[in-house]
Design a protein around this nucleic acid. Structure first.
Length: 429
RNA sequence: GUGAUUGUAGCUCAGUUGGUUAGAGCGCCAGGUUGUGGCCCUGGAGGCCGGGGGUUCGAGUCCCCUCAUUCACCCCA
């Protein structure tokens, strides 16, 4: 065991796994652009106030999970971003993008940081991909966002996910409902658990999705938000559901779904994976018209978005065996040296093969031929090209197909002709 | 932050009521084949038994502390 290890809640991604990330990222990039979203990259840290205002000072994320630091004694407090939406909205407002066009569709694949105790599917540094549609939040717009998210899952072949949706209502409706909830829970004050007592003051909606079994009974009798919604809110929600149904996207309505970030309003949603253990939310999102105003905008800016946890998606896909096709590639050819006497010649051949667009590997640690062959086999190259006295003398090389074990003797030009692949050629240009 | 769990070779793990030089499988390296892989056979390297303290004639094993891991609570992706 080495003296240093990766910091708690962080980990390394080695080549085999990196290939899986690239696969997912490729699908995200191509689908997002197919849906008309463009990539945005924002700073890893922001002023702490941004998250306090955006996510909500009473939320767990802001209250106890942020990595906050002072760059110097006189500087302003900074925080490693615990989510992306606040930073993206800040960027859009800062550049005044909405004056250039009414709608902006942005997506990202980014690392986030939360100071939680690590467990299955939860780390202190983690990644999300997500999209933000800023400038409209009509049912059509919200449905676009959800559809893109579900399309990514579908394209990757992920099975067995459950989409849950709810509406949280507009701000006035929520305010009235909030009062009703406080009225309802007040008599139970003595029975409520600690967390719920605190939420009663700050955000009573959150009591609803408490997973504490002791709370379930009390929660069951609570007034339902649905009864406080205006006709237009209901209509809005049902229109979203209509679009989902029309596209064959299955969902469950869950009236107790309340997201942990304060900025959500109206439609909120969450995707659950059964492969994940306790941390089973693989993605989520919703509408957040009021966020811009929190950041000083003179009016609401309609918007919605989603985020999906890359690590949780990885875990789900691994359990479903969705990476099998990725795991079997190696360089095309291994240049095998009879002994070190031919090292320089071999290096030159390897260089020429690579310039010709052929993925080539060669031994650099002076191992025996047998070891080189074993290595070629281990990394699954398709061919071995032998360099020895005979080859150097005649200019004809022994090329062995490692799959069929067939071996022929050819000029280097003929070898290149055989090994040349269109895809590999493009890489070199 | 709380609770539980597990720390022995690169990896997965054995290790008896405390008793000599701490083991296996896989992996790695080499040889069997002085120009040829996979399979097989043989050999080799590689361990402050997480760290510190204690009990004991004697600790990988028992006790305490500590660090780390994992899972769960909470919450979220």
């Amino acid at each position: 065991m080495s003296q240093y290890q990766a910091v708690k809640g962080t980990r390394d991604i080695f080549p085999e796994e990196a290939a899986r990330w690239k696969h997912i990222e490729g699908v995200v990039h191509s689908l997002a652009s197919m849906f008309g979203f463009s990539e945005i990259r924002t700073p890893v840290f922001e002023y702490t106030e941004l998250f306090q205002r955006g996510i909500g000072a009473t939320t767990d994320i802001v209250g106890k999970e942020m990595f906050t630091f002072l760059p110097d004694p006189t500087g302003r407090s900074l925080t490693l971003r615990p989510e992306m939406t606040a930073g993206v909205m800040r960027a859009v407002l800062q550049k005044n993008l909405l004056s250039m066009a009414p709608v902006h569709k942005l997506y990202y694949i980014s690392e986030l940081f939360r100071k939680e105790r690590p467990q299955a599917g939860r780390q202190r540094q983690f990644s999300q991909f997500g999209a933000e549609l800023i400038g409209v939040s009509t049912p059509a717009a919200v449905a676009e966002v959800i559809t893109l998210m579900m399309q990514v899952f579908e394209s990757l072949g992920v099975r067995g996910l459950k989409l849950r949706v709810n509406t949280l209502g507009g701000s006035e409706e929520r305010l009235r409902y909030r009062e009703a909830l406080q009225g309802y829970f007040a008599p139970f004050h003595a029975v409520l658990d600690e967390a719920s007592k605190e939420r009663l003051e700050k955000n009573p909606l959150r009591i609803l999705d408490s997973k504490n079994p002791d709370m379930q009974e009390i929660v069951a009798g609570a007034p339902r938000l649905y009864d406080y919604l205006t006709a237009s809110s209901v209509e809005d929600f049902e229109k979203v559901l209509f679009y989902l149904g029309d596209r064959g996207i299955g969902y469950d309505i869950d009236h107790r779904l309340v997201r942990g970030l304060d900025y959500y309003c109206n439609t909120a949603f969450e995707v659950i994976s059964s492969e994940l253990g306790a941390q089973d939310a693989i993605g989520g999102g919703g509408r957040y018209d009021g966020l811009a105003r929190e950041f000083g905008s003179s009016s609401d800016v309609p918007a919605s978005g989603f985020a999906v946890g890359m690590e949780r998606l990885l875990i789900t896909m691994e359990k479903q065996g969705l990476f099998a096709a990725l795991d079997s590639r190696g360089p095309l050819v291994y240049v095998i040296l009879q002994n070190q006497e031919f090292g320089d010649h071999g290096l030159q051949i390897a260089y020429r093969l690579r310039k010709a667009g052929i993925m080539t590997e060669i031994d650099l640690v002076a191992r025996s031929m047998k070891a080189q062959m074993r290595e070629a086999n281990r990394i699954r190259t398709s061919y071995a090209l032998f360099i020895g006295a005979t080859e150097v003398e005649t200019g004809l090389y022994a090329l062995k197909n490692l799959v069929t074990s067939e071996q022929t003797t050819l000029s280097l030009e003929a070898v290149i002709e055989i090994l040349r692949e269109p895809a590999a050629k493009e890489l070199m240009q």
